[in-house]
Amino acid sequence: MLSYTIRRLLLLIPVFLVVSIVIFLIIHLVPGDPIDNLVRVGSTPEQKAEITARYGLDRPLVEQYLIWLSQLAQGDLGTAIVMRRPVADLIAQNLPYSLTLGGLALLFSTVLGIAAGVIAAMNKEGRIDRTVMTGVLFGSTMPSFWLGLILILVFAVQLRWFPVSGARSWESLVLPVLTIGLGGMALVARVTRIAMLETAGKDFVLLLHAKGLPARRIQLRHVLRHALLPVVTILGLRIGWVLGGAVTVEYVFARPGLGMLLIKALSQHDYPVVQACLLMLAMAVMLGTLLGDLIQAAMDPRVRSALT
């Protein structure tokens, strides 16, 4: 298990390099540059050239990439060109907000998603199953940007239960968590339901029934345990998704976070910030997948034995 973990971690390095190249190229090849956002009315072309040189943007792309990568290796994310602060500071300021929101949304979608999936599976083809699955379908198809505004209209404007926006109190977390969590919940519920129905058809379940165990106990103790394996994989993938998917939600609810930072930096073409944000999101996806695989290995002896 340990050697497997180490091997998986080492494998991340080439993936990381490829991701960093892709991120670097995307942002640098898109037309537009940050200096246009810096120079103001009245400054001369010479002043502009000076600023460009100050940030090394006049050098060849390959050289710029190597400089960025070597600084990155030393843990230096650089300084924001337009926002004028160390990028690490900006990330450190925004990451906790994103992690809180993402973590709670993930928790919400895990708990409610599994619960909904189990309920639906136990009432297979019944009225409850149909109702839950319809609701889930609805939840998974609604764009989060729109859902966020609708939730604001209903719960903040009409009912006045929660504040419209901001990040000042725990109440202001409820609507954003719901917005992100509902989509994830839908996915988890569907996967749980299908996995449970599939497991229920296995021979060992038949045996358990033959042994005379109560049906409810078979479902919750035995079937669910097996069915959770694909769910864990999905959740691992969602970890990265939850951070990235919060971008539009943070924008609608005026919450600080990686997404807000990314949107702002994108519109200003602030290269170091965009690069760092995208890198963080890519890392989250990579680590999330790894975590999902490790948990799966820990849970399933078959996967573990295949490793050695």
Binding site: L149, V164, S165, F253, A254, I263
Partner: peptide, 18 residues
Amino acid sequence: FREIPEQSTSFLELKTGG
């Protein structure tokens, strides 16, 4: 002074007295 990037959101804040 609050910073709200989305204009629909800030309008709703004004409307609800936020």
